[in-house]
């Protein structure tokens, strides 16, 4: 298994990378950590004519505290996020989510921006982006623009990035006071692709659920919110029966669960409900403890 031939460029600035994208259009593919792209190249599932290796854009490797959010440069590795003291202190949900991404050997190369731009619907980062309303900055020939996570994921491995745009950073909102969180995932082994997973946040005010977010992954073409399940608990006093009902709603409102060798669509629908129920239960207990 060897990649097909391609031309190779390693730009030293975002502007040069964008110019190369403009020049080569659909024939070009950006290479960051390569943990998704190189397997596709090896198996010749992808045969781009030009590889634009952005690995030398080291100024896109940072994690910055920006008050109510962390800003993460696109080329920051998953491992840097996992090991960051800033992330551990300011964003425990982000830290916990990162540990579900593949294996340490993959996280050592895989990048935060790359995972979001790759848009695998079974991956954790895109689901977290949807759960937290991350703001995704992309740069094209006309300059930078910001895309909300809700508008970013279009379908399988497809985003609203234009062909001549490159993702440069992601703004990750912090959780507000009184908010608990949880990530739950079922995979055949820890580190494998999720068969189904849920990321939940739950905000308590005077004993009632003031806000809730449920994002599901591994169950469709993109990471999805479960708005009906969210509405089930918002305004209510959380309890076990409510979480069970929310799980059932989440399970029912998935429009197109995946079916593959690892699980039927019915099984994934079932798992999504169970993951939602467990995540809400844990998020609630964390919210109470805060």
């Amino acid at each position: 298994m060897k990649p097909a031939q391609f031309d190779y460029a390693d730009p030293r600035s975002v502007e040069d990378a964008v110019a190369l994208l403009q020049q080569h259009g659909a024939d070009a593919k950006i290479l960051a950590g390569g943990q998704s792209l190189v397997p596709l190249l090896n198996m010749r599932l992808a045969r781009p004519a030009v590889i634009i290796d952005v690995g030398k854009l080291r100024d896109l490797d940072y994690i910055r505290d920006d008050g109510d959010a962390l800003v993460i440069g696109a080329l920051t590795t998953q491992r840097s996020v996992e090991r960051s003291e800033l992330v551990a202190r300011e964003h425990p949900l982000l830290a916990a989510t990162t540990r579900y991404i593949a294996h340490p050997q993959i996280r050592n190369r895989g990048t935060f921006g790359g995972s979001i731009a790759h848009a695998d619907p079974a991956a954790e980062c895109p689901a977290l982006a949807v759960a937290l309303d991350m703001q995704i900055t992309v740069v094209g020939p006309g300059g930078a623009r910001v895309i909300a996570a809700a508008d970013f994921f279009v379908t399988y491995l497809t985003t609203s990035l234009e062909q001549d745009e490159i993702l440069t950073d992601v703004r990750v909102p912090k959780l507000t006071p009184g908010t608990g969180w949880s990530i739950q995932e079922v995979a055949r082994r820890h580190g494998d692709f999720a068969m189904a997973g849920a990321i939940c946040t739950l905000t308590l005010e005077r004993g009632r659920c003031a806000a809730a977010r449920i994002a599901l992954f591994g169950v469709g073409a993109v990471p999805v919110r479960a708005p009906e399940a969210e509405q089930t608990i918002i305004g209510q006093e959380p309890n076990a029966a409510l979480f069970e009902e929310a799980g059932a709603r989440a399970s029912a409102e998935i429009s197109e669960p995946l079916a593959d060798i690892h699980g039927s669509s019915e099984f994934r629908r079932h798992l999504a409900g169970v993951m939602t129920q467990r995540a809400l239960t844990e998020a609630f207990s964390r919210a109470e403890a805060r």
Binding site: G34, Q35, V38, P39, R79, P104, Q105, I106, N108, R109
Partner: peptide, 9 residues
């Protein structure tokens, strides 16, 4: 850092 040398150019 431990990395896969088969999925790196």
């Amino acid at each position: 850092q431990a990395v896969r040398s088969c999925i790196m150019l």
